[in-house]
């Protein structure tokens, strides 16, 4: 026993090092399961509070640009309003009044309070949380395109796994031809991502639009992801397409969290038929 105590005392430096290093590494690897970010609720509430204060100070610097972007988005949305349309074909008039349309997607506006683009596993924090109706696995977009997916929610804040995280893959398709593939970020350039699994026989053009496919039950169909800048063959039969992301992650400020009101129903159906 005395020998043991003497051993511990003599080697306390190395033993404490092993203890602390193990603790830190356990934290790192637990964190690899990104859905478990909920466990960091408390720390997120504290750092979220400070982040909000700092952010309210710094956002003045980008007010002008944010206003411009919002203005442009408002213009687009006004154009999308049902009242901006009229029914041209007499046949469609019999389809019923616009009142019978049912809402499927609900947009919750949120502000970015912390963001990074220079790591392999980047994260974004938002100033809206469970109290505002945000739940994990909701889609997040900005005025210009796809941003990411909500992973953790506390009462007033939430964390988002952005496209700029090598763990995230988003099912996307070519707007023109409808061929779909999987889009991911390779961890280098925050402006570019790679779209794979597009068959080789499809004709591609630089500048073609890439949009979300709507297959994942997270993103609605047809949300802008980016435009094609380059493509090359890989694995013989497929294109590896380089996509310039339309959302500028370096100056992300105002975003929308999308609530899918029919998501439960869709997931239940898919589970009932054993579809995965």
């Amino acid at each position: 026993m005395r020998n043991l105590i003497r051993f511990i005392l003599n080697n306390h430096f190395a033993l404490l090092f092993i203890l602390l290093e193990t603790t830190a590494l356990v934290l790192v690897f637990q964190n690899n399961n990104y859905q478990n970010t909920v466990a960091f609720n408390v720390s997120r509430n504290i750092s979220g509070f400070i982040n909000t204060k700092i952010h309210s100070l710094t956002q003045y610097l980008s007010l002008l640009e944010a206003n411009k972007a919002l203005h442009e988005e408002n213009r687009m949305l006004r154009n999308e309003l049902l009242s901006s349309y009229h029914i041209a074909t007499p046949l469609l008039e019999e389809a019923g009044p616009a009142g019978e349309w049912e809402r499927r997607y609900n947009y919750i506006p949120a502000k970015v309070i912390a963001n990074s683009v220079n790591k392999q596993y980047n994260y974004i924090s938002l100033d809206r949380g469970a109290l505002h109706g945000i739940e994990p696995e909701m889609a997040v977009i900005s005025g210009s395109g796809v941003v990411g997916i909500v992973t953790g929610v506390s009462d007033n804040f939430s964390t988002v796994l952005p496209l700029l995280n090598t763990d995230l893959r988003i099912s996307s398709k070519l707007k023109d031809s409808g061929y779909f593939g999987s889009l991911y970020w390779d961890g280098t350039d925050p402006e570019k991502a790679t779209l794979t699994d597009i068959p080789h026989h499809v004709t591609l053009n630089r500048g073609d639009s890439v949009v979300t496919s709507g297959f994942s039950a997270i993103f609605p169909e047809g949300i802008m992801v980016g435009t094609i800048t380059d493509f090359e063959i890989y694995g013989g039969n497929f294109w590896a397409v380089t996509v310039r992301l339309s959302a500028d992650f370096r100056k992300l400020n105002h975003v929308y969290v999308i609530q899918d009101l029919l998501r439960e129903e869709l997931l239940e159906l898919e589970e009932a038929v054993g579809y995965d």
Binding site: L25, S116, Y123
Partner: peptide, 9 residues
């Protein structure tokens, strides 16, 4: 920075 344990290690 939302990276539990990384900088600590």
């Amino acid at each position: 920075s939302n990276t539990p344990g990384l900088h600590a290690s």
